[in-house]
Amino acid sequence: MRANRKLWAAATVCVAVVAGVTGCSKGDDKPADPFAGLTADAIADKSVETTKAATAFRMHGKGKTDGEEMTVDFSVDNKGNCKGSMKVPAGGSAEIIGTGGTSYMKGDDAFWKSTGGEEGASSDESGAMSELLKGRWMKMPSEKGAEASGPDAFCDLEQIVKDMDEETPRKGLTREADADVDGTPAAVLSKKDKGGTTTFYVAKDSAKPYILRVVTTGGDDPGTVDLSDFDKPVTVTAPPADQTVDMEELMKAAS
């Protein structure tokens, strides 16, 4: 399972889902453009800084990483709470929650069989892990920063926005025709380079110009990710102890 930088950059999380261009019929008054007079690069700077300041958001999308497609949908806040789900190329899926410095993951049978055990584990070993975790949550201490993996890759808001800051293009952008993202008018900014084309959609809101969507086409890691529910607290309840398996216990069983 990959860390956040891949999630943001590529799945920076499918092939482009481009919103339809909005328009007005003749005679309609167009609302004032909150970005009038700003270059595309300046709009990008403003949107990144605004999104970085959010105390919470939902991030959902689909993308390819190393040629394999993964779908994620999760919410995270700056108090260490997160919850969501993911689907992996082999067809399995898993729920993810994090709270109080601990992360939990509960996968279906296909998920554990395809991801369980150490690299090179036999089908019998992966099957044993799947049986041990059936209907239960795998519990593990949270890790922070760029090296976090597993559920922690989805639960560290600080690292997610850091990766966003580093990966979102902010120089040499072109402003395209405005569009609509789930009912919200958006300015559309794009940049082409040897790695493909990155297009992102910024809410046309002078006070809170959040990034609403990022689309990457071409290159090795195409994907689309949508952001929503900004500053909405994430409520998480840890599962009961009798429904969890501690990671240390799991590692002993695997050995």
Rank of each mutant, 00 (worst) to 15 (best):
D29L: 10
D29T: 09
P31A: 12
P31I: 09
A32K: 10
A32I: 06
D33Y: 03
D33C: 01
D33I: 01
P34N: 01
F35K: 02
F35W: 04
F35T: 01
F35Y: 09
A36H: 02
G37T: 05
L38D: 00
T39P: 04
A40L: 04
A40I: 04
A40D: 05
A40F: 03
D41C: 04
A42I: 07
A42D: 15
A42P: 03
A42L: 09
I43F: 05
I43C: 03
I43P: 00
I43R: 03
I43G: 01
A44N: 09
A44F: 04
A44K: 02
A44Y: 04
D45R: 08
D45L: 08
K46P: 02
K46Q: 15
K46A: 12
K46D: 05
S47T: 14
S47K: 06
S47G: 14
S47E: 07
S47R: 04
V48C: 12
V48I: 15
V48H: 12
E49P: 00
E49S: 10
E49L: 07
E49V: 04
T50D: 08
T50P: 02
K52S: 07
A53T: 14
A53V: 13
A53L: 14
A53I: 15
A53G: 12
A53K: 15
A54K: 03
A54W: 02
A54F: 06
T55Y: 09
T55H: 15
R58Y: 13
M59E: 14
H60V: 13
H60N: 14
G61D: 09
G61N: 10
G61R: 07
K62S: 15
G63R: 07
G63K: 08
G63Y: 06
K64H: 02
